[in-house]
Structures are given as structure tokens and as C-alpha cells.
Simulated scan of single mutants.
Amino acid sequence: MVAAAAATAVVCVSPPAFAATWTVTPGGAVTGTAGTTTLKDVNTGATLTCSSSTTNATVQSGSGLSGTAIATVTNASFNSCKGPLGIRFNVTNNAVSYQLNANSYSAGVTSGTLDNITATLSGPLCSASVGGTTSTTPGSVTGTYTNATHTLSVSGGNLHVWNVSGCFGLLNSGDAVSYTANYVLSPAMTITSP
């Protein structure tokens, strides 16, 4: 379950605040497993539902971490995916390198974004690509990681479908889509920030 950052020069008239630092234990290789996973066209309501999905990622370890790319997803797979009318779809990801960026922390829950998301959908008489706000940029979703349940939940963001071929008007190029899944991580990770 990936990022581009823009830097702006400013003139500081007061001392800058210290950036948040993060601690992760144990870090290392991790597998995320989700049950029902959905991709819904916000404009038409058409929903692609997968019975499950899995990810493999590498998580940073230690203290004093910046939160940027605190985890990198290196593989994502989606299983038994069906669209409207029960039509089966394949969801593929090429050169997966989604980045999880931690932004804030409260009561055992880390909030952030999963950036650099791209995918391809293909089914009978319907195909499309998934990305960000243009056909050539990757997308992003919001996410929370809860220490108590070691679950990464993703939703929202700026995903859109592009390069739509066929699909009977159920998907249209430029439509916003929402991606929803809850990944239980194994081994469990603990992420904290002062």
C-alpha cells in the first residue's frame, strides 16, 4: 500500500519548530494481509471488490526517524476481484514502490499517506489504469496505523482512473476512485512519536 514533496523557501522571523521524530520497533520485512478490498468509482458508484489483498514491505527500524518513507511497499497482490455484474478483473502493479509517510501521532495511532500508487485493471471488455490527478502521475491515499491492532487502514486520497477502454460507462477516464482496505501486519510493528 507511496510520494512527491514540494519545497518552498520562506523567511523565518522566529525560531523554527523541531520536526517530529519517530521510533519503530522491530522494523524489517513485514507482510500485510487484508480481507475485502474495494476500489470504487466516486462518480458512477461502480465498485471493484477483491476478496483479499496482500502486501510485502520493508519498515525502517530505530529512533530519530524522519517519518518520510517510514515503510516501503515492494509488492501488492489482489485476489478474486469482481466488478459490476460479477465480471472478474485482474489487478496488476508494476515496479511497486509505494511509500508510507508518517505525519502525525496520537494515542497509539500514526496518521500519514501511502504514496506513489499505480495499478492496471483488466477484465472482459474493460481496462483502465489507476494513478493520481493526471494520467502520468502516481496517486496517494490517506492511512492510519494502529499499534494495538497492528493494522494499517487506507482510504481517501487522490486516486483516479485513466486510459479507460470499454467498461460500458461504469468507469470513465478522469473519474476519482476510492481505495479501501485494512492490512494486518505480521510481524506486528510499534510506531511512536513524542
Rank of each mutant, 00 (worst) to 15 (best):
V59Y: 00
T74Q: 10
T180W: 00
S140Q: 15
T142K: 08
L159R: 03
L114E: 08
N93G: 07
N158R: 08
S140R: 14
T38A: 02
G139R: 04
T31W: 12
T151V: 06
P194E: 08
G28S: 06
P124Y: 07
N163L: 12
I191G: 06
S52A: 13
T54S: 14
N101P: 06
N101D: 13
S153D: 11
N94E: 12
R88G: 12
S155R: 03
C167Q: 07
C126L: 01
S80W: 09
D175P: 07
G143S: 13
G45T: 08
A20F: 01
L185S: 07
G45N: 04
N75Q: 12
D41Y: 08
R88D: 12
T190M: 03
A102D: 05
K82G: 05
Q99H: 07
T110K: 10
C167N: 01
Q99A: 10
T55R: 02
S52H: 00
G62R: 08
Y179D: 03
L39E: 00
G27L: 09
A46C: 09
G112V: 10
S80R: 13
L48F: 12
N75R: 13
T151R: 07
T92N: 15
A176Q: 14
S173M: 08
G123V: 02
S173I: 11
L125I: 00
G32L: 03
N163Q: 08
Y183C: 00
L152N: 11
T180R: 04
T151H: 03
G86A: 07
L114R: 05
G35W: 01
L65K: 14
T33G: 00
T38Q: 04
D115C: 09
A181Q: 06
S63N: 10
V13L: 14
T72H: 05
T54K: 14
T120N: 12
A57G: 11
G156I: 11
L65M: 10
T21K: 14
F168I: 07
P187A: 10
C126A: 06
T47C: 06
A95R: 09
G45F: 06
T25V: 12
V30T: 11
Y105H: 05
A57E: 01
G132I: 04
S104V: 15
T36K: 05
G139E: 11
A19G: 13
F89K: 03
N103K: 09
Q60E: 12
A107Y: 05
T92F: 13
V154N: 02
G156S: 13
T144S: 13
S104R: 11
S193C: 15
A119T: 03
L114I: 04
T23E: 13
A95I: 04
S122F: 05
D175I: 07
T74E: 04
V96H: 05
N172P: 04
N43F: 09
V91E: 01
V161M: 00
N94C: 00
S77R: 15
S153Y: 04
A6T: 13
L170M: 11
T74C: 09
N75L: 09
G123A: 10
G139V: 00
L121T: 02
N43A: 15
N79A: 09
V130F: 00
S52T: 03
T38Y: 00
T136S: 15
A176F: 09
A17V: 12
L39W: 05
H150P: 07
T120C: 06
P26V: 10
A119L: 05
N93R: 12
P15T: 15
S186L: 03
T38M: 02
G67R: 09
A4R: 14
